[in-house]
């Protein structure tokens, strides 16, 4: 049954059959999978073509060497591990903070709401790099505590994400229909129980695509920590490319590695959008 909500939006085209089963679902995903594969194949082809041409580039003294790159893969992958660690920890802490920020932003007490709004605007209005550097170099002067660099960047990312996730959660919470909160109240659920069992689960489903998008951005932004000497993928990439005098091969590979992690998650995001969209449909 195809459903229309009150604004007339359809959750799906009215005539298309709902794909069931893995085979049909993969077929339905066909276009995206093909695009993804095409991009990867294109990159690989370009790579092979370029590395097979001897002295064919614009800088005659530059010799392409694919085999050399293989030796440094482990170092790059070590960097990737650091990147992933930063990403996962920052996202986890950021999500937790995000819910707190959203609830604080919606508080009826101005003394809670005010500082929260200021916090959000500062985090959204300053560059991530500036935040990273500030937390690492400037915060110790204020607090007297010098954080190790990993902790400092995680703190900075957590605060940054907390603000962005917080705004997303806020929009989600406000999008939960009033009757849901009232039903929960009539059922006898207190504020915390209402949030936990009724509001936040629905709010999260509503804004999940935004949360995933912010998370992908964070994954890419972790490359900024390379400027502070953290041995992530970018830092290791630059170190290796300098040491081997092969910036093009190495840095292109670094870019490809970031891409190969981020792109599937982007595809996942679309799938999630569709899957959770089903639960939101108000039926007549």
């Amino acid at each position: 049954m195809r459903h229309q909500d009150e604004d007339g939006r359809l959750d799906r085209p009215a005539i298309v059959e709902v794909p069931e089963g893995l085979a049909q679902r993969m077929r339905a995903r066909g276009p995206q999978i093909l695009v993804g594969l095409a991009i990867l194949v294109a990159l690989w082809l370009i790579w092979m073509v370029l590395t097979s041409i001897a002295g064919g580039s614009s800088a005659p003294s530059y010799r392409w060497d694919f085999g050399m790159v293989g030796r440094y893969m482990p170092v790059l992958l070590e960097g990737l591990v650091m990147t992933l660690q930063l990403t996962v920890v920052s996202i986890s802490l950021g999500l937790t903070l995000g819910i707190v920020v959203a609830l604080a932003r919606l508080s009826s007490l101005r003394i809670v709401r005010g500082p929260t709004i200021i916090f959000i605007e500062i985090m959204r209005g300053t560059p991530a790099l500036v935040q990273l550097v500030w937390v690492y170099y400037a915060l110790p002067i204020v607090t007297g505590i010098q954080l190790p660099v990993f902790s400092a960047v995680v703190l900075a990312f957590t605060l940054n994400l907390g603000a962005f996730y917080g705004e997303a959660f806020r929009a989600g919470i406000q999008a939960v229909p009033r009757e849901q909160v009232e039903t929960a109240d009539v059922l006898g659920l207190g504020y915390v129980q209402r949030m936990r069992y009724v509001v936040v689960p629905q709010a999260t489903r509503i804004v999940l695509p935004v949360l995933i998008s912010l998370s992908i951005s964070l994954f890419k932004d972790t490359s900024l920590v390379s400027t502070l000497g953290v041995a992530d993928l970018m830092y290791n990439g630059r170190t290796v490319s300098t040491a081997t005098y092969r910036p093009l091969e190495i840095l292109t590979l670094v870019g490809a590695i970031y891409f190969m992690v981020a792109f599937p998650v982007t595809l996942l995001m679309r799938r999630v959008e569709v899957h959770f969209g089903r639960h939101q449909t108000p039926t007549r």
Partner: peptide, 11 residues
């Protein structure tokens, strides 16, 4: 109380 809309928790 039973409401007109959105009565059940969809998740």
């Amino acid at each position: 109380m039973v409401f007109q809309h959105f009565t059940l928790f969809p998740q």
